[in-house]
Design a protein around this nucleic acid. Structure first.
Lengths: 207, 207
DNA sequence: TAAATATTCAAGTATTCAATTGAATACTAT
DNA sequence: ATAGTATTCAATTGAATACTTGAATATTTA
């Protein structure tokens, strides 16, 4: 095989993967399934896309082998196909942030407007804190930071009494575009907790 | 600003970056300018694309701020716009390799057929070797591994007498799809050198 | 001002992509 | 066999993309 042939085949395949994530809907769907197996219905609802459209995009992701499926009776569960995909997407976020003044500005403006303090893992190093994962419990079970407890944002009201007001509460969710943590921090701050949002999220599979 | 709005804007911007690299020609052009500033003519020639097409794709990359330009008289030099881009592309290669049996098989089959031994940095740890960068000198000057000397593949014949036959010669070029290192290793092996190709390439800017 | 060199732009054509609508399929329970 | 639930497929329409051809532009030199 000539090397020019290898190059052409390879670039074609690699570019096709990039093209596959080159649509906002598919990117969002991939980020959602990175957090755990989900049904088409759940994905459509979470991403606020029409059912047929969601299914179409999922077929495209499946064709590219970015996702895998598992049917349980009538329900098909979609999962991330490879551990490198979330890393790829994270890198994509980083590059977009570096390149796009619009994106950077929009993100920073939103954070300022939301009046939610953020903190990095480095900044946390010398502090005493409680870390809470505000995603749905299935996503927590799929993988979470070892030190985090799960308080789904939908159950904040009934769970917040468990929290120590003397401690710094650090909330995280799916990624920088997920607003659950913002909402939780806002509510907790209002009732007197010292709450912040974790800035950089590095998800690990639970042991 | 509503969080749903932020999400939509953000995914749109991020996905657009992915779409920008979602074409084999643009991906190749980006990999080439990652190795140093290049003119349109040089890029068209290296990538074997028509001039007009090359320019069109470069305009697209420029529009997405993936590349920057600098005009010197009549010649426009294209450069990589951000250090995260080569890392993103490398991650993309990795994901494609993991997902695509075709890609993996094609790459491994080519390497087997080329009869070129490869070696990793880890495997080199305990060995005595000479590392050679076989890219054009401008690319070497732009950035290279600190321990490498530059022997452009086009100047192998006149330079190989400088090499010690007692030492292991480790060649590298632009990335896994660049065949210059394969050719150099083939030639050196034929005339009695102990030559291999470096498997994983991690480029650093020269200090 | 004109020529040379390098590059970009514009338009046409063909192809691919995305969303919607509606039909078809897969599976279980009755 | 039929109904219910969930999902996928197919076709259409309109938008977006890619390549080619040829014109236009940018810059320097003479």
């Amino acid at each position: 095989m000539k090397s020019i042939h290898l190059k052409e085949i390879s670039f074609s395949i690699i570019a096709n993967i990039a093209k596959g994530i080159g649509h906002p809907h598919r990117l969002e769907l991939l980020e959602l399934v990175s957090q755990g197996s989900k049904s088409v219905e759940a994905l459509a609802k979470e991403a606020r896309m029409s059912f047929a459209n969601t299914s179409q995009h999922l077929q495209r992701l499946k064709q590219l082998k970015l996702v895998t499926t598992k049917r349980q009776f009538t329900t098909v569960y979609y999962s991330i196909a490879d551990a490198s995909i979330p890393l790829l997407i994270k890198m994509l976020h980083q590059t977009a942030f570096n390149l796009s003044a619009d994106f950077k500005h929009t993100l920073l403006a939103y954070q300022k407007e939301a009046k939610v303090k953020t903190i990095t893992m480095d900044e946390l190093a010398s502090k005493d804190y409680l870390m809470i994962d505000v995603r749905p419990t299935e996503e927590y079970q799929f993988g979470h930071r070892a030190e985090a407890i799960n308080i789904p944002h939908t159950k904040l009201s009934s769970s917040m009494n468990k929290l120590d007001k003397q401690k710094l509460i650090v909330a995280y969710c799916r990624g920088e575009l997920c607003s659950y943590a913002d909402k939780v921090v806002e509510v907790l701050t209002k009732v007197g907790y010292n709450a912040v949002r974790l800035k950089d999220i590095i998800m690990t599979k639970s042991a």
